[in-house]
Amino acid sequence: MKGIRAILAEVFKPGLCVGCGGCVGLCPYISFYDGKVIYTDECTRDEGRCYEVCPRIQCSIGQVDEEPIGPYLAILRSRARNTEIRQTTQYGGTITALILLALKEGLIKKAVLTSDDSQGAPSGVIAQTEEEVMACSGSRYVGAGSLEAFNRAVKEETIPCGIVGLPCQAESLRSMQASPLSHPQHKDSVTIVLGLFCTWSLDYRSLNRFLKEKNLKTPIIKYDIPPPPANVFQVTTRDKETIEFPLDDIRSFVMPGCAFCRDMTAEKADLSVGTVEGMEEWNTLIIRTKIGQELLELADKKGVLELEQLPRSNLEHLKEASLAKRRRKPH
């Protein structure tokens, strides 16, 4: 077991932190500020939870000969039946619909989501009401440190939580659950983990500087990368204006730590959700665990989601993309 010194040497110094937020809020030494995880003061302990939860260190996914999309029970395509939800969500609104359901049915007491802080930087959010959940819909293609909100939510006591996160965040949560150093309320509060597909994510500060230079004043509420051959990066502002930039302009903002990630489909989640190429109104949905399955059955029963077979070509394409990430060599 190791501590902060190892993280410093292996993750922070080489610039490999991807901002999952797993270590943030466990102690006063690491904080998430203006879209970045920062080590502020020197801790001298030889072992720590920071090391235990860091997905850049505790990396269990990624053998090329494994199933490229990880273990699963079923794969479907899905979307929220309520079209109002779909107005603001990224694609089919599966995530938002499932979180709202879990809160309403009392499966979870708090949802750990991602939104923006008052300064426009991404940040974790503890959501309990419909309004709060809706405010988090849409993808911010940046490392958002949102697990900090989980650590904050369960600081005092065990509270059933539903956590929405990227593959690295799902990995971090599972490492945290497995670590002997973790506090019981952290382990016991992880109730449902909803994972998002992810190819890479961007460094918020670099992106923000770029957008500022492009004179974008109003906050961005949505980011998207339409499927190839578009080769563009789209941002939607609060004034509902969508602006496109060449994808190559922002490629340099991809976090270097993402190059080490072998997981595109959030293999450690209970349910993983992504896009369905060419069908913006839908999500690809991977059911991985019993917990995930039960939640989905409930959603079906309550008529929250529309569920259909995922077209074969899409599944194949997903596996190809996933394998490509598995084979990625860090530059």
Binding site: C27, P28, Y29, D41, R45, E47, L181
Partner: peptide
Amino acid sequence: GDSCGCNRFCTRV
């Protein structure tokens, strides 16, 4: 105190 989560933040830092 000196356990993980603080490590004497007040007196040491």
